[in-house]
Amino acid sequence: MEHQLFCCEVDTIRRAYHDANLLNDRVLQTMLKAEENYLPSPNYFKCVQKEIVPKMRKIVATWMLEVCEEQKCEEEVFPLAMNYLDRFLSVEHTKKTRLQLLGAACMFLASKMKETVPLTAEKLCIYTDNSIRPCELLQMELLVLNKLKWDLASVTPHDFIEHFLTKLPIHQSAKQILRKHAQTFVALCATDVNFIASPPSMIAAGSVAAAVQGLYLKGADSSLSSQNLTNYLSQVIRSDPDCLRSCQEQIESLLESSLRQAQQQSNSTESKRVEEDVDLSCTPTDVRDINI
């Protein structure tokens, strides 16, 4: 027994197993109701903010995603932090120079909500190139909490993805890759201003649908055909199929444009990035499988 103890002593975290009992319709319906309470105001750039424009949200979001990835945060942390950020900006006029501090505070909170070992204030400050101090981050955290009325239990698209996956007739092995793609789409949506007003269930459904299409998944029957899937998912989230279809198309075009951007970037930057890319393409990701 003690021997075992030594063997397992690695720096991984303990996490709870997924509770299959929570993947039922009652929970789903409750989530659909609850998500309404956590939607930011769709037009805060016009109504609340004077200095902050959509482009700046993109900049801070990209940075936040980078930090979350580098720190290997749980997938949910980034979209949750963006939800806090949008909700804060919906109610509080904020200066441009405070936006990074706000982003850091939101990651700080989201990480505490979702992770066993949360990000530290010190580390987050390092990521701002020490332009903010830990004590400022703590005060900002309090301010954010106050403006969000201490209600941090936002429903995120991730909460819905699991529900959708259990409903689809897909083999377990395909589900993993599907989940991963859908989560990638969700993160992408969180960086984009056009999805601020979309409810998490819509983003999740659009992401799952886009992932199924992108992966060319085929069910035993025709239930996974584009149209059937959209119709089905829109019923599940009690939305209009056309709405969901347009959301899915928006997600797909967002992916295309960010791929194009990333390509241009990697073309313009020098060998260092290229090396990194080569490195990455050696890792056993799904990328090639999809490129059939």
Partner: peptide, 11 residues
């Protein structure tokens, strides 16, 4: 949707 190999961000 295709995922090209040399896309850093998505990968």
């Amino acid at each position: 949707v295709l995922f090209p190999k040399n896309c850093h961000a998505v990968k």
